[in-house]
């Protein structure tokens, strides 16, 4: 997982619960907490930090990851505003994720282990098929919600097929109201 994800997680915790809380989380997990945005770190480290956050905030993992997804979108947008700027609406932005945005990530980083998205247009619904060894579909959902807010788009997101239920991919249906 890229360091930028850890950086944003740290910012979220500090913003909502203070620096001490982040220090305690690091102390509990035993990690140093030194993350550089361009470097890669073990996925397990992120999952352990998220689990510790759940304990501290007393909320379930899915809620933490969902909230983090929304927050992550804002932070990534602040760092790389060009991707949102070059999309006219939420639908075209979401469709550009797999080729344009991940394409740019591939230019900068070797083996970033990106998730794959495939798309199907069903009128008022954009069906996004998500595949990733990390199975972070909830994070993807949070990111989509963050993107919807950024584009002022009113959407319903459903998740009828999930890798956590044994499927080989997750299906995220983004219905535009």
């Amino acid at each position: 997982m890229k360091g930028v994800i850890f950086n944003v997680l740290e910012e979220l915790v500090i913003e909502t619960s203070g620096m001490e809380a982040w220090n305690n989380i690091l102390a509990a997990t035993g990690y140093e907490g030194i993350y550089t945005s361009g470097d890669s770190y073990p996925d397990e480290e992120l999952f352990a930090l998220a689990a510790e956050i759940c304990k501290v905030l007393n909320v379930d993992l899915a809620t933490v990851i969902g909230i983090f997804g929304e927050y992550l979108f804002d932070q990534l947008d602040a760092r790389h505003p060009v991707f949102v700027q070059q999309s006219s609406d939420l639908r075209s932005f979401l469709v550009s994720v797999d080729t344009v945005i991940h394409g740019e990530v591939l230019k900068l980083y070797q083996n970033p282990n990106l998730p794959r998205f495939s798309y199907r247009d069903e009128g008022d619904t954009l069906v996004m098929n998500y595949t990733s060894e990390r199975k972070l579909c909830i994070l993807a959902e949070g990111l989509i919600r963050g993107a919807a807010k950024r584009f002022n788009a009113d959407v319903d997101i459903s998740h009828p097929v999930c890798m956590h239920d044994g499927a080989d991919h997750c299906q995220l249906n983004v219905r535009f109201k």
């Binding site: 550089t36 945005s37 361009g38 760092r79 740019e104 230019k107 900068l108």
Partner: peptide
């Protein structure tokens, strides 16, 4: 963040 952004721009 600025230093990392600079690094990213240079990498690009």
């Amino acid at each position: 963040r600025r230093a990392e952004q600079l690094l990213e721009d240079k990498s690009r």
